[in-house]
């Protein structure tokens, strides 16, 4: 029946999501090579981060290039809570998420009055301000940064030295959570409102869509999960400073997988991350980062995709992109 075309599509996506989750869950089991394990963990982490970005940048169409700020805030909040109050990061990461959401709302309040490129530029500036603040803020270690103290192998603090496997499941849970949130939003009133805001603000308004609150809600959810990703990352690397979690390159790194894979699609962030993260890591290790050849390959890839397939890799793979109907049989 026609009415259920959307419901059917959503059910299929959920089934695909569960299958991918199972594949990613068994993927690391035969792998003994630490380098490869690390690569997979980073890829999945970035898939989750980029999905969090996608909630605001993709579904709501507000291209933020300042998400590094929420990432960094997440890393700092959970680490500070751990270092100075002894609160384990499994709890601290939710505090980090809340602070990240509040930060996203504070940034959104003035910046959502700007549209299009002006909004994107404003977020770059805000991200840079955040970086400079943390660089000079002694309370959080300023330029020296913070070491995450090792409390022995334990899940509460997400600290594992003997094996990378537990961390694989931590980032997988994170990425799965962001995916599910995006899936739920896609089928809800919010998702429809946000996409309407992205496609045509004037038309959206004429249909009683509340434009500013829509953007703020998207920003809060996006900031929340980006900060949680930052908190997880801090536990993974064990040391943070402004350059390693707040640099503007993070803002780009978070946005790129979604842009490359397909903005505003469920699978874009994961597909983009699978292409981008190994490419960037491999070129860096084989080229030694000399002369920035890795970055040139990285940038070149993005230019090629932007020119050849502006809707992202997902449309190339034949996975139904959210721009519907193309696969629907003509009647």
């Amino acid at each position: 029946m026609m009415t259920n075309s959307i419901l059917r599509r959503r059910r299929n996506e959920l089934v695909a999501g569960v299958l991918v989750l199972i594949i990613l869950a068994v993927l690391p089991l035969p792998i003994r090579d630490v380098y490869t394990q690390n690569l997979i963990i980073l890829t999945i982490l970035y898939a989750g981060l980029s999905q969090a970005w996608n909630i605001l940048g993709g579904y709501c169409g507000q291209i933020s290039l300042g998400h590094g700020l929420y990432f960094g805030i997440g890393a700092y909040v959970s680490t500070m809570l751990f270092v100075s109050a002894g609160i384990p990061p499994t709890i601290g990461m939710f505090a980090a998420g809340i602070v990240g959401a509040v930060a996203a709302l504070l940034v959104g309040w003035p910046c959502f009055r700007l549209s299009g490129h002006y909004y994107a530029i404003a977020t770059v500036v805000v991200g840079e301000i955040g970086y400079l603040l943390f660089l000079n803020w002694d309370f959080v270690g300023a330029a020296t940064g913070l070491y995450v103290p090792f409390h022995g192998e334990n899940w509460a603090a997400l600290q594992f030295r003997t094996s990378k496997l537990p961390f694989h499941y931590v980032v997988l849970a994170f990425a799965a959570l962001t995916w599910i949130v995006a899936w739920v939003i896609e089928g809800s009133r919010w998702g429809y409102s946000w996409r309407a805001v992205r496609d045509d603000v004037t038309a959206a308004r004429s249909l009683a869509v509340r434009v500013f609150p829509s953007k703020m809600a998207a920003a809060a959810i996006s900031g929340f999960f980006t900060a949680i990703g930052g908190a997880i990352y801090a536990q993974y690397v064990g040391y943070i400073d402004p350059d390693s979690v707040l640099a503007s390159s993070f803002s780009v790194l978070i946005a790129l997988p979604a842009v490359l894979g397909g903005v505003g699609t469920l699978w874009g962030p994961l597909v983009g991350a699978i292409v981008l993260i190994p490419t960037s890591e491999l070129t860096r290790s084989y080229m030694g980062g000399a002369g920035g050849i890795d970055l040139m390959i990285y940038g070149g890839l993005i230019v090629v995709i932007a020119l050849a397939r502006p809707t992202g890799l997902v449309s190339l793979l034949g996975i139904r992109k959210q721009v519907g109907g193309a696969n629907a049989a003509p009647t």
């Binding site: 009133r189 309407a196 045509d200 249909l207 721009v323 519907g324």
Partner: peptide, 30 residues
């Protein structure tokens, strides 16, 4: 309700999804 002189459809969405945006002004249920 209104239409526009220069058509303003939500081009990333299907026809059905376009119309649902309007319908969501009266309900929260998909």
């Amino acid at each position: 309700a209104r239409t526009f002189q220069v058509v303003r459809s939500f081009d990333s969405m299907t026809v059905r999804e376009n119309v649902m945006v309007g319908a969501f002004s009266r309900t929260n249920r998909a």
